[in-house]
Amino acid sequence: MIPPLPGPAHAALPSTATRQTPGPAPGTSSDPPAGDDCCRLGALRKGQRAVVAGLDDSAVATPLPPGELERRMIEMGLIEGARVEILHEGFPGADPLAVRINDHTLALRRAEAHAVLVTLG
């Protein structure tokens, strides 16, 4: 049921160098630009499936040093080509998310899930 998958082109990754100063605090941030919204993991709802297309933590406010969130996400399996599915949503505010990533399940908050670019499928 789960074929081994070579990911899409790894060359087009956003490098950590493109990371800018942290955006507004999570509580106060307005939603990411509308056109962007459909293809970020943080915008998906329960039951939706997608494939990770890339990581871009430039707009996510974290106390972590630059690039660290990206590395942690990769270590937890959020990497280009990984198939994801939103299994459960927390309460209240449908946050955090329980996301199936290939063979395991990861809990993460919507704010940080916005760093994951996905293509629906």
Binding site: T62, P63, L64, H104, A107, R109
Partner: peptide, 12 residues
């Protein structure tokens, strides 16, 4: 003070 640490926790 400071933003919260990300969650990123495996649900075994």
């Amino acid at each position: 003070k400071g933003a919260r640490e990300p969650l990123l926790m495996e649900l075994p």
